[in-house]
Design a binder for these strands. Sequence first.
DNA 1: CAAACAGATAAGTATCTGCTTATTTGTTTG
DNA 2: CAAACAAATAAGCAGATACTTATCTGTTTG
Lengths: 104, 104
Amino acid sequence: MNETDIFRALSDPTRRAVFEKLAAGERNATELREGFGVSQPAISQHLAILRGAGLIRERRAGRHVHYSVEPDGLEPLFSWIERHRAFWPARVDRLKDLLREMDQ
Amino acid sequence: MNETDIFRALSDPTRRAVFEKLAAGERNATELREGFGVSQPAISQHLAILRGAGLIRERRAGRHVHYSVEPDGLEPLFSWIERHRAFWPARVDRLKDLLREMDQ
DNA sequence: CAAACAGATAAGTATCTGCTTATTTGTTTG
DNA sequence: CAAACAAATAAGCAGATACTTATCTGTTTG
């Protein structure tokens, strides 16, 4: 949920690729595994970390678990960027406004 | 320079705090060390990682080395966010425009 | 120029990470 | 209900990470 968890979760290329795949739409763990040369437990562990960072959610359906992006999951990352508006005075004020709109 | 390096560099709380301190203005290694209960080599190593990720730059002045934020260092992170416009269709199209402006 | 200083580098270490295989839990279906 | 299936968990391991102390390099200054 915090910045460290989010940065850490996204610092792994496989995990970032999984997240990006989910950004294109809901997938179950088996579908997510396709294309990665990695074991089923590895994907399961990556999903647990993404979930722990608040970036994805799961929806159980029988023996399948469908994963999808948590819509506001990246919000702490946006906030962190915004907090640098001291350094990018005008630029990030605009970003701030944009992010506020996104919340609606 | 790539996304992985940037996410990794920012995933450490101490390193993120150093970066944030630099966002407030140029500092040398000794000044940066203040407030962290950490050895001089530790800070030096953190700075090397931030530098390797393209997030900070250094300016040598005698026996001092002054560090500052690399203005476009976070650009790959912004681009990565932007690349999710498939998921936030309208929202991120706006962000895209904003980032284009920022490039000018 | 010797002593002090700023910072980087070396080397060692405990802990963390990402992976594996093996096993477990729970669900579906012939 | 047994076999197959989807996914999580356990345990172990090689490599990475963040730190330490010790040392080195380079700069300044009394």
